[in-house]
């Protein structure tokens, strides 16, 4: 299991942002899915991501990922406007599995409001991650 970056924040729906919950509002954050999610999804073969300019709402669906013959919703961990999308994942979805907290990031959001978020320790505790 990939270790959880300490300086990230985590949602109940297994998405991360690359800053602390306190620092999120008013800043632009990267969003991705956690290693807890990717290991349970299996090999990601397709992702439908929001587009630049889209409004996303914390805890609401904002896209989809397909793995193991299954389509799952992607939930926004924060509320705000999408400012960038990681198009590179469409060239090789395996990066979402191999580097979920780095090159496998999905999109960037200019945050107006953070959703309910956990610290790395809280997320690890909630999901039985050693």
């Amino acid at each position: 299991m990939t270790s959880l970056p300490e300086n990230y924040s985590y949602s109940e729906d297994h998405e991360w942002i690359d800053t602390t919950a306190d620092a999120a509002a008013g800043s632009t954050v990267k969003v991705g899915i956690t290693s807890v999610a990717t290991e349970r999804l299996g090999e990601v073969v397709y992702a439908e991501l929001p587009e630049v300019g889209d409004a996303v709402t914390a805890s609401e669906p904002c896209g989809e990922v397909e793995s193991t013959k299954s389509v799952s919703d992607l939930f926004a961990p924060v509320t705000g406007t999408v400012t960038a999308v990681n198009d590179a994942v469409h060239d090789d979805y395996s990066v979402i599995n191999s580097d979920p907290f780095g090159d496998g990031w999905l999109f960037e959001v200019e945050v107006t409001e953070a959703g309910p978020l956990m610290t790395a320790a809280e997320y690890a505790e909630a999901n039985g991650v050693a």
Partner: peptide
């Protein structure tokens, strides 16, 4: 929870 897609399939 956490939902295990691979295990379900």
């Amino acid at each position: 929870d956490p939902v295990d897609v691979v295990d379900y399939v």
